[in-house]
């Protein structure tokens, strides 16, 4: 067991981790239930969190590597999550909803990195967030709506 200190959603935390734990395991241990593991092959995007402001796959980040870093999950972005969740619901983009937490974290990263993303750029940025229900068109509409809304708020 080792002790790992990092910032989680703005608060300093200390967690105990095994040598082979991932950030995902540690977050679940800390009661962060928005983060889920959807695959064993590092390619579904469901476990996405922000590490130092960038979207990463928590299932593949070795826990000891988080020492001193800042981790943000959907729990720490309630306001943005509410607005984006509304867009997804309005466009019928959530069916089983299982993919939503990872998708939302990546959309929120996109909104910071490329707030005026084109359709093509949206598709490319979110290609690593698999969804088995929506067919992606409704998700793209929702993301466009959210980006426009977020840009409006910045201007206002």
């Amino acid at each position: 067991m080792m002790e790992i200190r990092f910032t989680l959603n703005g608060r300093a935390v200390t967690a105990m981790a095994e040598a082979d734990d991932s950030l995902y395991t540690v977050l679940r241990g800390l009661g962060i239930s928005s983060v889920k593991c959807g695959c064993e092959t590092t390619n579904c995007g469901l476990c996405t969190v922000h590490m130092d402001g960038q979207a990463v796959l928590s299932c593949s980040i070795p826990a000891p590597r988080c020492e001193g870093h800042s981790i943000v999950t959907l729990e720490g972005l309630q306001e943005e999550a509410k607005a984006l969740g509304g867009c997804l619901a309005d466009e019928g983009a959530e069916q089983c909803g299982f993919c939503a937490p990872g998708l939302m974290m990546n959309v929120l990263a996109l909104a910071k990195e490329n707030p005026a993303a084109t359709d093509e750029e949206i598709d490319a940025y979110l290609a690593g967030n698999l969804c088995r229900c929506s067919g992606y068109m409704s998700q793209r509409r929702a993301v466009k709506k959210y980006l426009a809304m977020a840009a409006g708020e910045v201007r206002a």
Binding site: A55, V56, S60, L126, A127, G128
Partner: peptide
């Protein structure tokens, strides 16, 4: 590199 899984993956 664009077709390799996704942006979060390629950041890792």
């Amino acid at each position: 590199f664009a077709p390799i899984v996704g942006t979060q993956f390629r950041r890792g």
